[in-house]
């Protein structure tokens, strides 16, 4: 497996996001591209990232190659990447060679770990409401609410998306709508569910990799966040609801 990306920051942000959910991850590469993710250890969230081969400047893969990496090692290696740095991943004899090309070239050799090959679970849900917005809008909303409490109520009322947090000192509420210009698209019926705010906050690093996020949910259904990636790639994060 070998791939080279021109935007190291974007790949680093994807890996950092996955690293917020799980300590290790399996990368599966095929001719079509790269897929990584899994269920977090507390079994509350499921992450599924698909990066098509066209996303990369160079991409080489066998029919199906599977490697396991310890995310902390890779994230540490990528901690100083800059915007115009290039990044190459190359697997060789049980090791991952990682090269960052920028003002100067840095190389890291990281041991691979043995992980079970992931079975990508089917998760077909009929969401009551869908909204599309800029990832920056989504992040700003979470930023406003982040210190207010620990669970977030996501609801839809007459086409508007309402995200609110109830804390010790009161309720904070953010209303987003197409009419107000902060949703790109919105459709569906009224619904409401409660989610752990900490799980939503784990996704904020996707801002460096994705400009648009689609949010889908229904009453007592998981929240699905689809972060759009170039070349029809995506980063899906599913978060199980709280039964409140």
């Amino acid at each position: 497996m070998k791939f080279k990306a021109v935007d190291a920051v974007s790949i680093a942000s994807i890996l950092r996001t996955v690293g917020e959910f799980m300590p290790e991850v399996t990368l599966v590469s095929t001719k079509e591209g790269l897929r990584l993710g899994g269920v977090d250890p507390s079994r509350v969230a499921y992450v599924d990232i698909v990066i098509p081969s066209l996303y990369f400047q160079e991409f080489e893969s066998g029919e199906r190659e599977v490697i396991g990496i310890k995310l902390e090692d890779v994230i540490n290696a990528l901690k100083n990447v800059k915007k115009n740095d290039g990044l190459t991943f190359f697997t060789n004899e049980g090791k991952l060679e990682l090269t960052i090309e920028g003002d100067f070239e840095r190389s890291f050799i990281i041991p691979l770990v043995e992980l079970e090959e992931p079975k990508n679970p089917g998760i077909n849900l009929q969401f009551a409401f869908k909204a599309k917005m800029l990832t920056s809008t989504f992040n700003e909303t979470l930023d406003i609410l982040s210190d207010m409490g620990e669970s977030v109520v996501i609801s839809s009322e007459d086409g508007k998306l309402i995200i609110s947090v109830e804390g010790d000192v009161g309720v904070s509420r953010v209303e987003l709508s197409e009419a107000a210009g902060n949703l790109i698209e919105a459709s569906g019926t009224n619904a409401s569910s409660v989610y752990g705010l900490d799980y939503l906050l784990k996704t904020t690093k996707m801002r460096n990799s994705s400009d648009v996020v689609e949010l889908m949910f229904g009453t007592q259904l998981p929240l699905k966040l689809r972060f759009q990636l170039p070349q029809e790639g995506y980063g899906d994060v599913y978060i199980a609801p709280r039964a409140e």
Binding site: V39, R43, V44, A45, Y46, P121, G122, I123, N124, L125, E150, S151, V194, G196, L221, P222, Y238, I239, A240, P241, R242, A243, E244
Partner: peptide, 14 residues
């Protein structure tokens, strides 16, 4: 309540 009310994502898998 946080522990008791939290559902698990695998219960929504096909």
């Amino acid at each position: 309540k946080r522990v008791l009310n939290q559902t698990r994502i695998d219960s929504f898998f096909d």
